[in-house]
């Protein structure tokens, strides 16, 4: 399923003194199979954008009382925003948003805040029971077991435990299991590693790489940790003040360090080191991962007399 957004705009609290433009004419395509990153500051519109993708925020034209804006004299007619996710046309009123949400899994920031059931099993099964009514008990159990094992928890040990008795990292895994249990084709995660220690971050990213591919074809992460984007993503989009600045593979993206700095964004640590070394006349060819950087440094050192 490809995601194709054209001229997407969104204003919060339109028409009130609190009105705030969150998205401004965003055109972006995310292809099936990508591990896509979305970068931006708080308030850059990145969360608003991903909320559109599973219909939590609806396009105006898909709402009941929508009236097409009339063209004003002497001005071109306003462009209609459009958004397609696979076969779902989100600008249409007839879209099956329920089916859409089944195909597009969404893990919110601090997903452990959504845990509610008495046992981990019940919590993970919640999504399954709402999306696939009338599923057999054994089928449910098999799917829940697969999801819990996928996120790296011990099924026998946690199935009957209250989710609130788990540790922080385990809670997050359980919450992710509750989303991937329906095997969505696209998995969107908002700051999946926020608030975790470095090891926890790495484990979550490893988990996402395991999920990416067979389990969920496309993974989209929203982040402001540049190292995370540099190490994991195939392509990344930069948002600033509701606008899309550019979409590039990480290496090309972070080569434009000056531009990112001017937007108030950072570059990965490895890129910073590369820039510092370049100023001293040492040019490295580095793929921006820590391992890659170390290798590049070693290679450069062997090259010098």
């Amino acid at each position: 399923m490809n995601i194709i957004a054209e001229h997407l705009s969104y204003v919060y609290n339109a028409g009130s003194p609190f009105a705030a433009r969150a998205l401004d004419d965003v055109t972006l395509t995310i292809e099936e199979g990508e591990f896509f990153g979305i970068i931006g500051h708080t308030g850059s519109g990145k969360s608003t954008f991903v909320k559109h993708l599973n219909g939590l925020i609806r396009l105006p034209s898909s709402l009941k009382h929508y009236r097409r804006p009339k063209a004003k004299k002497g001005r071109p007619a306003p462009v209609e925003p459009s958004l397609r996710v696979g076969e779902y046309d989100l600008a249409s009123r007839k879209t099956d948003f329920y089916g859409l949400r089944k195909s597009v899994g969404m893990v919110f920031q601090y997903p452990e805040a959504q845990l509610f059931a008495e046992t981990v099993f019940d919590d993970v099964a919640f999504g399954l029971k709402s999306f696939s009514r009338g599923m057999q008990e054994e089928e449910i159990e098999r799917a829940v077991r697969a999801a819990i094992e996928m996120v790296g928890l011990d099924y026998q040990a946690v199935r009957d435990v209250s989710p609130f008795d788990l540790s922080g990292g385990q809670k997050r895994r359980a919450a992710i299991a509750g989303v991937i249990v329906t095997r969505p084709e696209i998995l969107i995660l908002d700051e999946p590693a926020a608030g975790l220690d470095p090891l926890g971050k790495r484990e979550i990213m490893d988990l996402l790489h395991r999920i990416h591919g067979d389990w969920c074809k496309t993974v989209v992460i929203v982040s402001h940790d540049m190292d995370e984007i540099a190490e994991n993503c195939t392509r990344a989009a930069v948002f600033s003040e509701g606008r899309l600045v550019c979409v590039l593979p990480p290496k090309e993206l972070f080569a434009r360090a000056e531009e990112l700095f001017s937007l108030g964004l950072d570059v990965p640590l490895t890129q910073k080191l590369c820039i510092a070394l370049e100023k001293r006349g040492i040019k490295l060819d580095c793929n921006l991962t820590v391992d890659g950087f170390v290798r590049a440094v070693l290679a450069a050192r062997e090259g010098t007399p």
Partner: peptide
């Protein structure tokens, strides 16, 4: 709002 969105994304109605 956030919890509601999260549960809606998990199919809550």
């Amino acid at each position: 709002e956030r919890i509601k969105s999260a549960q809606m994304a998990r199919g809550a109605d």
